[in-house]
């Protein structure tokens, strides 16, 4: 009786979820496979003629292979920024957790500022110009580090709290230098939280639109999200190619999601439980 009711509610929820959450993605896929005329009708139908591959080639080769350049730029920026975020974030989290001092209040204040305060856009451009880093990938990487640090530091600090100090002390007695303790003893133990930071930040940086829009203008610097934006304004009528582009930017997070679902959820729900 009760289980029948549960099955019924389950099926109803399933149907609603599919309509609300799955159909939009199916629409993206179907439109990406249509011809130009077919796609411009905006209907939710099977393509009259499937041309997934041709649309794919058209999008990739559009505007002198801009999408390939964008993938290259986005990948370089994401990998560099995430690698340094993990390293610098873990180092701060480590000292913050292990060495109580009056500096900690200041560091915590900075973490809160980093989480809350909206970046001051034009003054940041002013600083970047002064450093000769405006419109450069290096500048973009440093910006992403600056904006992601607060999150990384918080996660690392709370994870490091679970690693017993006995390990540090044993290493000290063995005569290890501070950087050896950190790199040889602590960092390898941070693997679970490191995976979480890598996955969550990679998706955030790869999907970032606003910051490249401001800090990385210029054709040769284009990132994946900006190709989508440019496509929307320049090829507003070629919906098949526009949606093929959307499909292509959706696939990397999908792959990451399939493999790292657990770590993503762990990272994004940190703090939901008292502690």
């Amino acid at each position: 009786m009760n289980s029948r009711r549960q099955l019924f509610t389950g099926l109803a929820a399933l149907a609603a979820t599919i309509v609300i959450f799955v159909l939009p993605f199916l629409f993206i896929f179907l439109t990406a496979a249509k011809t130009k005329q077919d796609a411009s009708l905006l209907t939710f139908t099977l393509p009259q003629q499937w041309q997934l591959w041709q649309n794919f080639m058209d999008v990739v080769s559009a505007r002198d292979y801009m999408l390939l350049l964008a993938y290259f730029n986005s990948t370089v920026i994401t990998v560099a920024a995430v690698a340094l975020l993990v390293l610098f974030g873990a180092m701060v989290g480590y000292v913050l957790q292990r060495r109580p001092s009056r500096w900690n209040t200041l560091i915590f204040a900075c973490v809160m500022i980093g989480l809350m305060v909206p970046p001051a856009v034009v003054p940041t451009i002013w600083v970047l110009q002064w450093l000769d880093l405006f419109k450069t990938r290096t500048g973009m990487v440093l910006i992403q580090i600056a904006y992601g640090l607060a999150f990384a530091v918080l996660l690392f600090r709370s994870f490091i709290a679970t690693i017993p100090r006995d390990l540090d002390e044993a290493a000290i007695i063995d005569g290890a230098k501070p950087w050896q303790i950190f790199f040889r003893v602590i960092l390898p133990l941070l693997k679970p939280v490191t995976v979480t930071v890598i996955v969550v930040q990679s998706i955030a940086i790869f999907n970032d639109f606003t910051n490249p829009l401001y800090y990385l203008p210029g054709r040769e610097n284009v990132t994946v999200q900006l190709t989508l934006y440019n496509f929307q304004s320049q090829f507003g009528t070629e919906f098949n190619l526009l949606f093929m582009n959307i499909l292509l930017v959706t696939i990397p997070p999908l792959i990451v999601f399939i493999f790292f679902n657990r770590q993503i959820v762990a990272g994004m729900t940190a703090g939901a439980v008292k502690g």
């Binding site: 610098f88 701060v92 480590y94 900075c110 305060v117 001051a120 003054p123 002013w126 440093l142 600056a146």
Partner: peptide, 28 residues
Amino acid sequence: TKSPYPYWFILPAAVIFTVLFLVPTLAS
């Protein structure tokens, strides 16, 4: 004796955050 948790560990993060976040915020 020197602490096994040296402050210079904070330095790279502090420099990036200060220059690209705190300074623009104050300048704003």
